[in-house]
Write a protein that binds this DNA or RNA. Structure first.
Lengths: 191, 191
DNA sequence: TACATAATGTGATCTACATCACCTAATGAT
DNA sequence: ATCATTAGGTGATGTAGATCACATTATGTA
């Protein structure tokens, strides 16, 4: 699939755009490719765009004072990633985004996004629904953090995103689940 | 302030509506008042509306197999509450909402919301931004759950929403923080 | 006014998970 | 091919917070 097709199919799950409308929207996306380990956003940066993942894997993460990393999101194909707090409030980045693997993305600038939103009603509807889905999935994760122990959080994640198992180093999975890498290792090497 | 004024001021923080536009939007909101302990949404219910809080306090919560309650959200004045997963995906409710105190709300049906969204562009923009803000605040809470211990989560909450201290029983605060009521009690009675 | 129920406090004990220390196995760079 | 770096495994030990048990104080209700 071409980048264009990947994006189009993704959007069409929510709304219908004419060829013309889609072409117009698509024209604002700039292809950007990154190597494993490359940083897209660093804490303190100005943030003016968001990334749509075509292939590979990004991680959005925070590093605390003790140098401990917490992962807010892995972004695989058709996922979106940015520091949305910074992007929407015009603040400096408070999280980092970098590449877990080589990654191809389409980059959309916030001002272009707002421009197209005004011009094409359906695009705004799409973005509203995208936000809703994001909200719902974060709520699910909060519930999982409150209710489940490390083992069932791990099993839940592996069941929902099995591709992460081979794609992402285990210590990053641990940093996503909120568990130490040692404990995670013990979890799936026993039982 | 009248309900109308409360809603209008809330919306105007994000977008501008003419008197006419606002009156039209407002006409779809139905005042609904509830007594402390009354249930707005129960697991398994059909969900077709969302609530805008005028006064009082709601809680959105989940009860697990061990009868342990986890609170996803407290909703105070100008907050919105519903089971958004159910509302957006036309599923049965997977969480409960009830009243922590006597509560006045304005109720908006999903079909009316979508109707007004189509008719008034600014309303759709408002809802898109509302979702974004919700997403950002859930992300903040996830980070807090991953990074902070019970004490600092408690202090963070009390600092951000001091009104909860006298409004909400401590065992509910505990259920929001993801800590046992005993531990919470010890936290603020020592140190 | 009395009684039931909900909210809160506090000690004793238990446990999931963190931390530390050290090891082996991959992976990658020169 | 060699060496450094990163990933991963595993034992020993420490600890935040859960759980259990029971007392105390509010709150609501007949």
């Amino acid at each position: 699939m071409t980048p264009r097709e990947i994006l189009r199919q993704h959007i069409q799950k929510t709304i219908l755009l004419s060829d013309e409308q889609f072409s117009y929207f698509f024209s604002f996306f700039k292809p950007m490719s990154f190597k494993k380990g490359q940083q897209l956003i660093r804490v303190g940066d100005d943030v003016d765009c968001e990334y749509f993942v075509l292939s590979g894997c990004l991680k959005t993460f925070f590093v605390n004072d003790d140098q401990k990393m917490h992962i807010l999101q892995f972004a695989l194909q058709t996922w979106w990633a940015s520091d949305y707090r910074a992007l929407y409030n015009h603040e400096k980045a408070s999280v980092n985004i970098d590449c877990v693997t080589d990654t191809e993305t389409l980059c959309l600038h916030a001002e272009d996004r707002e421009k197209v939103c005004k011009e094409i009603r359906e695009v705004e509807t799409f973005l509203r629904w995208r936000s809703n889905k994001g909200y719902i999935s974060l709520q699910k994760r909060i519930l999982s953090l409150l209710n489940n122990d490390a083992r069932s959080r791990y099993e839940e994640l592996m069941q929902q995103y099995p591709e992460l198992y081979n794609l992402v180093p285990k210590h990053l999975i641990a940093a996503y689940l909120g568990v130490s890498r040692e404990t995670l290792s013990r979890l799936y090497n026993s039982k």
